[in-house]
Design a binder for these strands. Structure first.
Lengths: 221, 221
DNA sequence: GAATGTGAAGGTTTTCACAGCA
DNA sequence: TGCTGTGAAAACCTTCACATTC
Protein backbone atom coordinates (compact mmCIF):
# COMPACT_ATOMS: atom_id res chain seq x y z
CA UNK A 1 0.00 0.00 0.00
CA UNK A 2 1.94 2.96 -1.30
CA UNK A 3 1.27 5.93 0.90
CA UNK A 4 1.31 8.31 -2.03
CA UNK A 5 -1.62 6.53 -3.58
CA UNK A 6 -3.90 7.09 -0.61
CA UNK A 7 -6.79 9.42 -1.40
CA UNK A 8 -5.65 12.83 -0.28
CA UNK A 9 -7.75 14.58 2.30
CA UNK A 10 -9.66 17.43 0.71
CA UNK A 11 -8.27 20.79 1.71
CA UNK A 12 -10.96 23.31 2.40
CA UNK A 13 -10.12 26.98 2.57
CA UNK A 14 -10.72 29.08 5.60
CA UNK A 15 -13.02 31.35 3.60
CA UNK A 16 -15.23 28.46 2.64
CA UNK A 17 -15.64 27.42 6.27
CA UNK A 18 -16.46 30.96 7.29
CA UNK A 19 -19.05 31.17 4.56
CA UNK A 20 -20.58 27.90 5.77
CA UNK A 21 -21.21 29.72 9.04
CA UNK A 22 -23.00 32.43 7.10
CA UNK A 23 -25.08 29.92 5.16
CA UNK A 24 -25.99 28.19 8.37
CA UNK A 25 -27.19 31.44 9.87
CA UNK A 26 -29.14 32.42 6.75
CA UNK A 27 -30.75 28.98 6.57
CA UNK A 28 -31.85 29.20 10.19
CA UNK A 29 -33.64 32.44 9.37
CA UNK A 30 -35.17 31.01 6.20
CA UNK A 31 -36.39 28.03 8.19
CA UNK A 32 -38.09 30.30 10.69
CA UNK A 33 -39.60 32.29 7.87
CA UNK A 34 -41.15 29.10 6.58
CA UNK A 35 -39.26 28.63 3.32
CA UNK A 36 -38.92 25.03 2.20
CA UNK A 37 -36.31 25.55 -0.49
CA UNK A 38 -33.82 28.22 -1.44
CA UNK A 39 -31.72 28.71 -4.55
CA UNK A 40 -28.02 29.50 -4.58
CA UNK A 41 -29.11 32.93 -5.81
CA UNK A 42 -31.40 33.42 -2.85
CA UNK A 43 -28.77 32.35 -0.35
CA UNK A 44 -26.11 34.44 -2.03
CA UNK A 45 -28.23 37.57 -1.88
CA UNK A 46 -28.77 37.24 1.86
CA UNK A 47 -25.05 37.20 2.53
CA UNK A 48 -23.81 39.44 -0.27
CA UNK A 49 -22.08 36.67 -2.17
CA UNK A 50 -22.42 35.24 -5.66
CA UNK A 51 -24.58 32.21 -6.54
CA UNK A 52 -21.56 30.48 -8.07
CA UNK A 53 -19.66 30.91 -4.82
CA UNK A 54 -22.45 29.30 -2.85
CA UNK A 55 -22.70 26.36 -5.22
CA UNK A 56 -18.95 25.85 -5.30
CA UNK A 57 -18.64 25.96 -1.51
CA UNK A 58 -21.38 23.40 -1.05
CA UNK A 59 -20.04 21.19 -3.83
CA UNK A 60 -16.89 20.51 -1.81
CA UNK A 61 -19.03 18.52 0.61
CA UNK A 62 -21.59 16.87 -1.63
CA UNK A 63 -24.64 17.47 -3.81
CA UNK A 64 -27.39 18.82 -1.65
CA UNK A 65 -29.60 20.56 -4.18
CA UNK A 66 -32.11 19.63 -6.82
CA UNK A 67 -31.64 21.02 -10.31
CA UNK A 68 -34.44 23.34 -11.21
CA UNK A 69 -35.54 23.65 -7.61
CA UNK A 70 -32.75 24.69 -5.28
CA UNK A 71 -31.72 23.44 -1.86
CA UNK A 72 -34.07 22.07 0.83
CA UNK A 73 -33.73 24.58 3.67
CA UNK A 74 -34.02 22.29 6.68
CA UNK A 75 -31.92 19.51 5.21
CA UNK A 76 -29.15 21.84 4.09
CA UNK A 77 -29.03 23.56 7.47
CA UNK A 78 -28.70 20.17 9.13
CA UNK A 79 -26.06 19.06 6.67
CA UNK A 80 -23.99 22.20 7.27
CA UNK A 81 -24.31 21.80 11.01
CA UNK A 82 -22.84 18.32 10.60
CA UNK A 83 -20.00 19.62 8.48
CA UNK A 84 -19.21 22.34 10.99
CA UNK A 85 -19.57 19.92 13.87
CA UNK A 86 -22.26 21.98 15.56
CA UNK A 87 -24.88 19.22 15.39
CA UNK A 88 -23.83 18.39 18.93
CA UNK A 89 -22.75 20.36 21.96
CA UNK A 90 -19.22 21.20 23.02
CA UNK A 91 -17.91 21.49 26.53
CA UNK A 92 -16.14 24.82 26.70
CA UNK A 93 -14.13 26.43 29.49
CA UNK A 94 -13.43 30.13 29.76
CA UNK A 95 -10.31 31.51 31.37
CA UNK A 96 -10.38 35.12 32.57
CA UNK A 97 -13.62 36.43 33.99
CA UNK A 98 -12.93 40.10 33.31
CA UNK A 99 -14.56 42.51 30.93
CA UNK A 100 -14.72 40.36 27.87
CA UNK A 101 -14.85 37.10 29.75
CA UNK A 102 -18.00 37.89 31.68
CA UNK A 103 -19.69 39.16 28.53
CA UNK A 104 -18.93 35.88 26.81
CA UNK A 105 -20.43 33.79 29.63
CA UNK A 106 -23.79 35.37 28.89
CA UNK A 107 -23.36 35.45 25.13
CA UNK A 108 -26.48 33.76 23.78
CA UNK A 109 -25.02 33.06 20.37
CA UNK A 110 -22.48 30.60 21.78
CA UNK A 111 -25.12 28.61 23.61
CA UNK A 112 -27.43 28.59 20.59
CA UNK A 113 -24.73 26.97 18.49
CA UNK A 114 -24.03 24.33 21.08
CA UNK A 115 -20.95 25.87 22.67
CA UNK A 116 -21.69 25.34 26.35
CA UNK A 117 -19.46 27.22 28.74
CA UNK A 118 -19.37 24.87 31.70
CA UNK A 119 -16.27 26.01 33.54
CA UNK A 120 -14.78 29.38 34.52
CA UNK A 121 -11.28 30.21 35.73
CA UNK A 122 -9.63 33.31 37.12
CA UNK A 123 -6.61 34.18 39.24
CA UNK A 124 -8.33 36.94 41.22
CA UNK A 125 -9.14 35.79 44.78
CA UNK A 126 -12.19 38.06 44.83
CA UNK A 127 -13.62 36.31 41.80
CA UNK A 128 -12.73 32.72 42.70
CA UNK A 129 -15.76 31.04 44.24
CA UNK A 130 -18.18 33.64 42.93
CA UNK A 131 -21.06 32.66 40.75
CA UNK A 132 -21.49 33.71 37.11
CA UNK A 133 -24.67 32.52 35.43
CA UNK A 134 -24.69 29.48 37.66
CA UNK A 135 -21.05 28.62 37.25
CA UNK A 136 -18.64 28.93 40.15
CA UNK A 137 -15.29 30.47 39.22
CA UNK A 138 -12.36 28.10 39.82
CA UNK A 139 -8.82 28.98 40.73
CA UNK A 140 -6.61 29.15 37.67
CA UNK A 141 -3.97 27.25 39.66
CA UNK A 142 -5.86 24.04 39.00
CA UNK A 143 -6.46 24.83 35.34
CA UNK A 144 -4.77 21.87 33.65
CA UNK A 145 -6.12 19.38 36.18
CA UNK A 146 -9.70 20.55 36.10
CA UNK A 147 -9.85 20.83 32.33
CA UNK A 148 -9.00 17.15 32.11
CA UNK A 149 -11.30 16.06 34.93
CA UNK A 150 -14.21 17.94 33.39
CA UNK A 151 -13.71 16.65 29.85
CA UNK A 152 -13.39 20.12 28.41
CA UNK A 153 -13.00 20.14 24.63
CA UNK A 154 -12.40 23.80 23.84
CA UNK A 155 -11.05 26.72 25.84
CA UNK A 156 -11.71 30.42 25.39
CA UNK A 157 -8.87 32.62 26.64
CA UNK A 158 -9.81 36.12 27.79
CA UNK A 159 -6.90 37.05 30.03
CA UNK A 160 -4.48 39.99 29.69
CA UNK A 161 -1.93 39.67 26.89
CA UNK A 162 0.93 39.53 29.38
CA UNK A 163 -0.16 36.21 30.88
CA UNK A 164 -1.89 34.61 27.91
CA UNK A 165 1.08 32.46 26.91
CA UNK A 166 1.38 30.89 30.38
CA UNK A 167 -2.32 30.15 30.42
CA UNK A 168 -2.18 28.59 26.98
CA UNK A 169 0.80 26.46 27.96
CA UNK A 170 -1.29 25.02 30.78
CA UNK A 171 -4.23 24.44 28.49
CA UNK A 172 -2.03 22.57 26.05
CA UNK A 173 -0.67 20.48 28.93
CA UNK A 174 -4.23 19.41 29.68
CA UNK A 175 -4.45 17.95 26.19
CA UNK A 176 -6.92 20.51 24.83
CA UNK A 177 -6.77 20.73 21.04
CA UNK A 178 -8.88 23.83 20.34
CA UNK A 179 -8.32 27.30 21.75
CA UNK A 180 -9.98 30.62 21.00
CA UNK A 181 -7.82 33.52 22.08
CA UNK A 182 -9.08 37.04 22.74
CA UNK A 183 -5.76 38.40 24.02
CA UNK A 184 -4.03 40.70 21.52
CA UNK A 185 -0.87 38.64 21.29
CA UNK A 186 0.45 35.88 19.06
CA UNK A 187 0.54 32.66 21.02
CA UNK A 188 2.69 29.61 20.43
CA UNK A 189 1.05 26.20 20.47
CA UNK A 190 2.13 22.79 19.13
CA UNK A 191 1.16 21.88 15.58
CA UNK A 192 -1.62 19.58 16.65
CA UNK A 193 -3.47 22.29 18.60
CA UNK A 194 -5.93 24.49 16.74
CA UNK A 195 -5.62 28.10 17.82
CA UNK A 196 -7.80 30.91 16.52
CA UNK A 197 -7.54 34.55 17.45
CA UNK A 198 -10.33 37.03 17.91
CA UNK A 199 -8.89 40.49 17.53
CA UNK A 200 -11.59 43.06 18.01
CA UNK A 201 -9.38 46.08 17.37
CA UNK A 202 -8.50 44.77 13.95
CA UNK A 203 -11.83 45.56 12.41
CA UNK A 204 -11.85 49.05 13.87
CA UNK A 205 -8.40 49.55 12.41
CA UNK A 206 -9.72 48.37 9.08
CA UNK A 207 -12.49 50.96 9.30
CA UNK A 208 -9.98 53.61 10.21
CA UNK A 209 -7.86 52.67 7.20
CA UNK A 210 -10.92 52.70 4.96
CA UNK A 211 -11.97 56.17 6.11
CA UNK A 212 -8.51 57.66 5.77
CA UNK A 213 -7.85 56.14 2.36
CA UNK A 214 -11.41 56.08 1.05
CA UNK A 215 -10.68 52.47 0.48
CA UNK A 216 -12.39 50.15 -1.91
CA UNK A 217 -11.17 46.64 -1.23
CA UNK A 218 -9.80 44.66 -4.14
CA UNK A 219 -12.19 41.90 -3.53
CA UNK A 220 -15.43 42.27 -1.65
CA UNK A 221 -16.05 39.39 0.72
CA UNK B 1 -7.61 65.12 -19.10
CA UNK B 2 -8.86 61.66 -19.94
CA UNK B 3 -10.17 60.04 -16.82
CA UNK B 4 -8.77 56.67 -17.82
CA UNK B 5 -5.27 58.09 -17.78
CA UNK B 6 -5.48 59.19 -14.17
CA UNK B 7 -3.19 57.21 -11.91
CA UNK B 8 -5.36 54.45 -10.56
CA UNK B 9 -5.75 54.26 -6.83
CA UNK B 10 -3.80 51.32 -5.48
CA UNK B 11 -6.05 48.53 -4.35
CA UNK B 12 -4.87 46.93 -1.17
CA UNK B 13 -6.22 43.59 -0.07
CA UNK B 14 -8.07 43.07 3.15
CA UNK B 15 -5.45 40.56 4.26
CA UNK B 16 -2.67 43.07 3.84
CA UNK B 17 -4.49 45.59 6.03
CA UNK B 18 -5.11 42.99 8.69
CA UNK B 19 -1.47 42.05 8.65
CA UNK B 20 -0.52 45.70 9.05
CA UNK B 21 -2.43 45.56 12.33
CA UNK B 22 -0.31 42.60 13.35
CA UNK B 23 2.91 44.34 12.37
CA UNK B 24 1.85 47.39 14.32
CA UNK B 25 1.26 45.29 17.40
CA UNK B 26 4.54 43.42 17.03
CA UNK B 27 6.46 46.65 16.52
CA UNK B 28 4.94 48.16 19.66
CA UNK B 29 6.26 45.19 21.61
CA UNK B 30 9.67 45.36 19.93
CA UNK B 31 9.84 49.04 20.76
CA UNK B 32 9.14 48.32 24.42
CA UNK B 33 11.74 45.58 24.37
CA UNK B 34 14.29 48.13 23.19
CA UNK B 35 14.99 46.87 19.67
CA UNK B 36 16.06 49.54 17.24
CA UNK B 37 15.70 47.55 14.05
CA UNK B 38 13.96 44.38 12.98
CA UNK B 39 14.26 42.29 9.83
CA UNK B 40 11.35 41.01 7.79
CA UNK B 41 12.34 37.62 9.09
CA UNK B 42 12.11 38.79 12.69
CA UNK B 43 8.75 40.40 12.18
CA UNK B 44 7.44 37.40 10.28
CA UNK B 45 8.41 35.01 13.01
CA UNK B 46 6.53 36.98 15.65
CA UNK B 47 3.30 36.74 13.69
CA UNK B 48 3.74 33.35 12.02
CA UNK B 49 4.10 34.77 8.54
CA UNK B 50 6.82 34.60 5.89
CA UNK B 51 9.53 37.25 5.45
CA UNK B 52 8.52 37.69 1.81
CA UNK B 53 4.96 38.39 2.87
CA UNK B 54 6.09 41.09 5.27
CA UNK B 55 8.29 42.76 2.66
CA UNK B 56 5.62 42.61 -0.01
CA UNK B 57 2.96 44.06 2.29
CA UNK B 58 5.17 46.97 3.28
CA UNK B 59 6.32 47.56 -0.29
CA UNK B 60 2.77 48.55 -1.27
CA UNK B 61 3.19 51.66 0.84
CA UNK B 62 6.84 52.58 0.32
CA UNK B 63 10.40 51.56 1.11
CA UNK B 64 10.87 51.71 4.82
CA UNK B 65 13.82 49.41 5.31
CA UNK B 66 17.55 49.48 4.84
CA UNK B 67 19.19 46.72 2.84
CA UNK B 68 21.44 44.65 5.02
CA UNK B 69 19.96 46.07 8.20
CA UNK B 70 16.21 45.73 8.38
CA UNK B 71 13.46 48.16 9.38
CA UNK B 72 13.77 50.88 12.02
CA UNK B 73 11.29 49.79 14.70
CA UNK B 74 9.99 53.16 15.86
CA UNK B 75 9.80 54.69 12.42
CA UNK B 76 8.03 51.73 10.91
CA UNK B 77 5.51 51.62 13.74
CA UNK B 78 4.77 55.28 13.18
CA UNK B 79 4.52 54.83 9.46
CA UNK B 80 2.05 51.97 9.83
CA UNK B 81 -0.01 53.96 12.29
CA UNK B 82 -0.28 56.68 9.65
CA UNK B 83 -1.30 54.17 6.99
CA UNK B 84 -3.95 52.66 9.25
CA UNK B 85 -5.10 56.10 10.34
CA UNK B 86 -4.49 55.38 14.01
CA UNK B 87 -1.96 58.19 14.43
CA UNK B 88 -4.89 60.25 15.72
CA UNK B 89 -7.95 59.58 17.83
CA UNK B 90 -11.42 58.69 16.59
CA UNK B 91 -14.71 59.69 18.18
CA UNK B 92 -16.68 56.49 18.52
CA UNK B 93 -20.24 55.89 19.72
CA UNK B 94 -21.54 52.58 20.97
CA UNK B 95 -25.15 51.51 20.59
CA UNK B 96 -26.47 48.80 22.90
CA UNK B 97 -25.13 48.71 26.44
CA UNK B 98 -25.82 45.03 27.06
CA UNK B 99 -23.46 42.14 27.56
CA UNK B 100 -21.04 42.82 24.79
CA UNK B 101 -21.60 46.55 24.76
CA UNK B 102 -20.58 47.14 28.35
CA UNK B 103 -17.52 44.96 27.91
CA UNK B 104 -16.46 47.07 24.96
CA UNK B 105 -16.79 50.33 26.88
CA UNK B 106 -14.05 49.15 29.21
CA UNK B 107 -11.99 47.45 26.53
CA UNK B 108 -8.51 48.90 26.95
CA UNK B 109 -7.31 47.91 23.51
CA UNK B 110 -9.70 50.29 21.78
CA UNK B 111 -8.55 53.24 23.83
CA UNK B 112 -4.90 52.37 23.34
CA UNK B 113 -5.33 52.52 19.59
CA UNK B 114 -7.08 55.86 19.71
CA UNK B 115 -10.65 54.65 19.42
CA UNK B 116 -12.39 56.75 22.06
CA UNK B 117 -15.89 55.70 22.97
CA UNK B 118 -17.47 59.04 23.88
CA UNK B 119 -21.16 58.28 23.55
CA UNK B 120 -23.45 55.42 24.60
CA UNK B 121 -27.00 54.64 23.51
CA UNK B 122 -29.63 52.18 24.64
CA UNK B 123 -33.39 51.79 24.44
CA UNK B 124 -33.81 50.41 27.96
CA UNK B 125 -35.27 53.04 30.30
CA UNK B 126 -33.38 51.51 33.22
CA UNK B 127 -30.10 52.05 31.44
CA UNK B 128 -30.76 55.49 29.99
CA UNK B 129 -29.20 58.13 32.23
CA UNK B 130 -26.96 55.63 33.99
CA UNK B 131 -23.23 56.06 34.02
CA UNK B 132 -20.76 53.67 32.39
CA UNK B 133 -17.10 54.55 32.80
CA UNK B 134 -18.00 58.21 33.02
CA UNK B 135 -20.35 58.25 30.05
CA UNK B 136 -24.08 58.78 30.53
CA UNK B 137 -26.24 56.48 28.43
CA UNK B 138 -28.45 58.39 25.97
CA UNK B 139 -31.85 57.41 24.67
CA UNK B 140 -31.59 55.63 21.34
CA UNK B 141 -34.53 57.74 20.15
CA UNK B 142 -32.18 60.65 19.60
CA UNK B 143 -29.51 58.53 17.94
CA UNK B 144 -29.22 60.21 14.53
CA UNK B 145 -29.40 63.70 16.02
CA UNK B 146 -26.85 63.20 18.74
CA UNK B 147 -24.38 61.39 16.51
CA UNK B 148 -24.27 64.46 14.30
CA UNK B 149 -24.17 66.97 17.14
CA UNK B 150 -21.30 65.12 18.79
CA UNK B 151 -19.22 64.72 15.63
CA UNK B 152 -19.10 60.98 15.93
CA UNK B 153 -16.98 59.33 13.24
CA UNK B 154 -17.51 55.62 13.86
CA UNK B 155 -20.27 53.62 15.50
CA UNK B 156 -20.11 50.23 17.16
CA UNK B 157 -23.40 48.33 17.07
CA UNK B 158 -23.98 45.82 19.87
CA UNK B 159 -27.77 45.43 19.84
CA UNK B 160 -29.85 42.28 19.29
CA UNK B 161 -29.93 40.99 15.71
CA UNK B 162 -33.64 41.70 15.45
CA UNK B 163 -33.24 45.47 15.74
CA UNK B 164 -29.79 45.95 14.26
CA UNK B 165 -31.03 46.98 10.81
CA UNK B 166 -33.21 49.78 12.23
CA UNK B 167 -30.34 51.05 14.32
CA UNK B 168 -28.00 51.00 11.34
CA UNK B 169 -30.52 52.85 9.19
CA UNK B 170 -30.52 55.63 11.77
CA UNK B 171 -26.74 55.68 11.92
CA UNK B 172 -26.54 55.99 8.16
CA UNK B 173 -29.05 58.85 8.28
CA UNK B 174 -26.69 60.68 10.60
CA UNK B 175 -24.06 60.59 7.89
CA UNK B 176 -21.75 58.11 9.64
CA UNK B 177 -19.48 56.32 7.17
CA UNK B 178 -17.94 53.60 9.35
CA UNK B 179 -19.84 50.98 11.33
CA UNK B 180 -18.64 47.96 13.29
CA UNK B 181 -21.43 45.44 13.79
CA UNK B 182 -21.47 42.76 16.49
CA UNK B 183 -25.00 41.55 15.76
CA UNK B 184 -25.07 38.18 13.99
CA UNK B 185 -27.00 39.42 10.96
CA UNK B 186 -26.14 40.73 7.52
CA UNK B 187 -26.92 44.44 7.41
CA UNK B 188 -27.65 46.58 4.39
CA UNK B 189 -25.89 49.93 4.08
CA UNK B 190 -25.31 52.26 1.10
CA UNK B 191 -22.17 51.76 -0.97
CA UNK B 192 -20.38 54.72 0.57
CA UNK B 193 -20.66 53.39 4.12
CA UNK B 194 -17.98 51.04 5.42
CA UNK B 195 -19.49 48.20 7.39
CA UNK B 196 -17.48 45.49 9.11
CA UNK B 197 -18.85 42.56 11.04
CA UNK B 198 -17.47 40.97 14.16
CA UNK B 199 -18.86 37.48 14.41
CA UNK B 200 -17.54 35.83 17.53
CA UNK B 201 -19.25 32.49 16.95
CA UNK B 202 -17.53 32.11 13.61
CA UNK B 203 -14.16 31.29 15.09
CA UNK B 204 -15.62 28.77 17.50
CA UNK B 205 -17.37 27.18 14.55
CA UNK B 206 -14.07 27.08 12.75
CA UNK B 207 -12.52 25.29 15.73
CA UNK B 208 -15.41 22.88 15.84
CA UNK B 209 -14.93 22.16 12.14
CA UNK B 210 -11.21 21.69 12.64
CA UNK B 211 -11.71 19.22 15.50
CA UNK B 212 -14.33 17.19 13.69
CA UNK B 213 -12.42 17.04 10.42
CA UNK B 214 -8.90 17.15 11.80
CA UNK B 215 -8.52 20.02 9.43
CA UNK B 216 -5.36 21.45 8.00
CA UNK B 217 -6.19 24.66 6.18
CA UNK B 218 -5.06 25.04 2.59
CA UNK B 219 -3.25 28.19 3.35
CA UNK B 220 -2.09 29.14 6.80
CA UNK B 221 -2.72 32.77 7.56
C1' DG C 1 -37.86 26.59 -17.74
C1' DA C 2 -35.16 26.71 -13.71
C1' DA C 3 -31.32 25.92 -11.11
C1' DT C 4 -27.53 22.66 -9.74
C1' DG C 5 -22.78 20.86 -10.16
C1' DT C 6 -18.39 21.49 -12.16
C1' DG C 7 -14.37 21.81 -15.35
C1' DA C 8 -12.01 25.64 -17.14
C1' DA C 9 -10.89 30.49 -17.23
C1' DG C 10 -9.77 34.50 -14.94
C1' DG C 11 -8.14 37.09 -10.94
C1' DT C 12 -5.84 37.67 -6.78
C1' DT C 13 -2.52 36.61 -3.29
C1' DT C 14 1.53 34.40 -1.85
C1' DT C 15 6.01 32.72 -2.50
C1' DC C 16 10.25 32.50 -5.00
C1' DA C 17 14.50 34.09 -6.27
C1' DC C 18 17.64 37.41 -7.22
C1' DA C 19 19.39 42.12 -8.39
C1' DG C 20 20.82 45.87 -5.77
C1' DC C 21 22.32 48.33 -1.91
C1' DA C 22 24.26 49.25 2.97
C1' DT D 1 27.72 39.49 4.02
C1' DG D 2 22.93 40.56 5.17
C1' DC D 3 18.66 41.98 4.05
C1' DT D 4 15.43 44.80 1.26
C1' DG D 5 12.50 45.56 -2.75
C1' DT D 6 10.37 43.48 -6.60
C1' DG D 7 9.32 41.23 -11.06
C1' DA D 8 8.01 36.57 -12.16
C1' DA D 9 6.21 32.11 -10.97
C1' DA D 10 3.31 29.38 -8.32
C1' DA D 11 -0.60 28.61 -5.58
C1' DC D 12 -4.98 29.64 -4.54
C1' DC D 13 -9.72 31.33 -4.87
C1' DT D 14 -13.63 33.07 -7.44
C1' DT D 15 -16.34 33.49 -11.45
C1' DC D 16 -17.87 31.85 -15.84
C1' DA D 17 -20.43 29.12 -18.66
C1' DC D 18 -22.66 25.18 -19.83
C1' DA D 19 -24.01 20.27 -19.65
C1' DT D 20 -27.17 18.05 -16.81
C1' DT D 21 -31.17 17.11 -14.25
C1' DC D 22 -35.72 17.86 -12.30
Amino acid sequence: MASDSLPEKKRISESTIHRLSLYYRALSVLEKEGFETVSSKGLAKREKLTPAQVRKDLSFFGSFGTRGLGYPVVELREKISQILGIDRSWRVALVGVGNIGSALVSYKEFQKQGFKIVKLFDNDQRKIGSNHKGIVVSDIKNLANELELDNIEMVVVAVPATVAQYVVDDIVKAGIKAILNFAPVNLKVPDDVFLRNENMSMELEYLSFALVNDHIPKRVR
